[in-house]
């Protein structure tokens, strides 16, 4: 459990240092506005829910694929993969923590589009 929390924590630290990773959060509102404008312009109120849900889902995919996929790759890039594999803690729970942190952030887009709606 401690390793898991350490993973969550380090992922949040890293994200705070590299705001680029939060890019998806800034692009979601644009996508949402595009979709909404399209369905409103077409006078299709029945599609408004879809127009709001779609950007949120795109955000979630963006986050999970982009970040979660990169966790291990970037670790290798920085050269910390080997030391962390050699560390006495099971790395699975740390990575699980980091990936969960990413997925947790992925929920933010849902809130974002809900606010827009």
């Amino acid at each position: 459990m401690r390793a898991f929390l350490a993973g969550v924590r380090i992922q949040f630290w890293l994200i705070r240092r590299q705001p680029d990773d939060l890019l998806t959060l800034c692009t979601i509102p644009f996508t949402a506005v595009i979709m909404l404008s399209v369905v409103i312009h077409a006078i299709r109120p029945d599609l408004v829910t879809n127009a709001l849900l779609a950007p949120a889902l795109i955000g979630l995919w963006g986050f999970s694929i982009g970040l979660a996929g990169e966790v291990i790759e970037s670790e290798r890039w920085v050269g910390t993969l080997n030391p962390s594999l050699a560390a006495p803690t099971e790395m699975h729970s740390v990575y699980f923590g980091r990936i969960m942190a990413v997925m947790g952030l992925g929920v933010i887009p849902l809130g974002e589009t809900w606010l827009l709606g």
């Binding site: 590299q18 705001p19 680029d20 890019l23 800034c26 692009t27 644009f30």
Partner: peptide, 10 residues
């Protein structure tokens, strides 16, 4: 330079 991706997307 840190804001480059953000700037590109926006």
């Amino acid at each position: 330079p840190a804001a480059r991706w953000l700037a590109l997307n926006i």
